[in-house]
């Protein structure tokens, strides 16, 4: 008799061969894993003609909201996922993380995350910086690095400005953030796209502080390159992505799909995230995130195209009067 097949759509590092093999042996099934390397590729796979051809999918909370809105997900039964009890209180507060629940039903289970904190050169700071506003500090003029991204830069500029809803900016707030981001442009050395690019610039130009879009993974790469760097979570709060597991509407065996999600939360499986990927898991506390810190899990922004268009003008060097 042919074995049941579970079809998994995930990011590299979320379903390593040894992990998959153990699951196959335990449940006497066969697992097909398809990897994607961008949110766009994930979206395309989930929107293939005829619907998704996967039982379970891993994506961040913002994407999960889009998938739910498009009717692509099935609700989960928490009693089939007993390992939810093992998660840290922060991740058990499902109502507190937009994208996990819809109409009181559980749709996504947190799996791994990364904050986007501040990375600083310990030799240039007597005390760790404690505010996002350090990026605008004229004492570090041309010693600051920022990530080249419209949506994130608007969100953290809003955080730094004390705006309560950084993902939902009205027109006046957007205009105010344009001014703030022009001020930031005048204070940075430059913008980076890739983590290795940031590492090279940080060391070669003796950078003091940067917005760590790639979080602790970036911190590790800087340390390996010999930089004496620290990681700070700003008091205003920190942006963070949170990848979750969900079951698609194409799931052929909901019980098996939820067994997979439960298996991903086994301590031995989740423990591989920090050791192999340099990512945090949802079971054990991370030294880089104090338990009381305010975390803003990424959400869809009010108008991503508008933010991107404004960002292109800011990045290109437009003067304040031309917006």
């Amino acid at each position: 008799m042919a074995k049941d097949v579970l079809r998994v759509l995930a990011w590299p590092g979320y379903a390593d061969p040894d992990v998959v093999h153990d699951f196959e042996r335990r449940y006497q099934v066969s697992v097909e894993v398809t990897f994607v390397d961008s949110d766009e590729a994930l979206w395309a796979r989930m929107h293939a003609a005829g619907g998704p051809r996967f039982d379970v999918v891993a994506a961040n909370t913002a994407e999960m909201q889009r998938y739910h809105a498009a009717g692509l997900l099935l609700p989960l039964n928490p009693s089939l996922i007993p390992n939810l009890q093992r998660q840290l209180p922060r991740f058990r507060d499902r109502a507190g993380i937009p994208g996990l629940q819809q109409q009181g039903k559980l749709y996504a289970v947190p799996y791994t995350y990364s904050t986007m904190g501040i990375i600083y050169d310990k030799r240039q700071f007597a005390r760790p910086p404690d505010s996002m506003n350090v990026l605008w500090d004229p004492r570090y003029r041309h010693k600051v690095l920022d990530f080249n991204s419209g949506p994130h830069n608007f969100s953290f500029a809003a955080l730094a400005s004390g705006i309560a809803q950084p993902f939902r900016l009205d027109a006046a707030q957007q205009a105010a953030m344009v001014k703030r981001l022009i001020d930031l442009r005048r204070n940075v050395l430059t913008y980076y796209n890739l983590p290795e690019e940031a590492t090279e610039l940080f060391i070669r130009h003796k950078v003091a502080v940067m917005f760590g879009n790639y979080g602790t993974q970036q911190l590790n790469s800087l340390r390996q390159a010999g930089a004496d760097v620290g990681y700070a979570i700003p008091r205003e709060g920190v942006l963070a992505w949170l990848d979750c597991w969900a079951m698609t509407r194409a799931a052929r065996q909901p019980q098996l799909a939820q067994q997979w999600i439960n298996y991903m939360l086994e301590p031995s499986v989740s423990a591989l995230l920090p050791t192999r990927q340099g990512l945090a898991n949802t079971l054990s506390a991370s030294a880089d995130l104090p338990s009381g810190a305010r975390v803003l899990w990424l959400q869809p922004v009010e108008n991503a195209n508008r933010r991107e268009a404004l960002w292109q003008k800011i990045y290109s060097g437009d003067l304040p009067g031309s917006f």
Binding site: R185, R186, V188, T190, Y191, S316, G317, L319, G321, S322
Partner: peptide
């Protein structure tokens, strides 16, 4: 005039 841009943050300047 106002269409000129600031380019100090590009590597070809710094």
């Amino acid at each position: 005039g106002g269409d000129l841009q600031e380019k100090g943050h590009f590597p070809y300047v710094f």
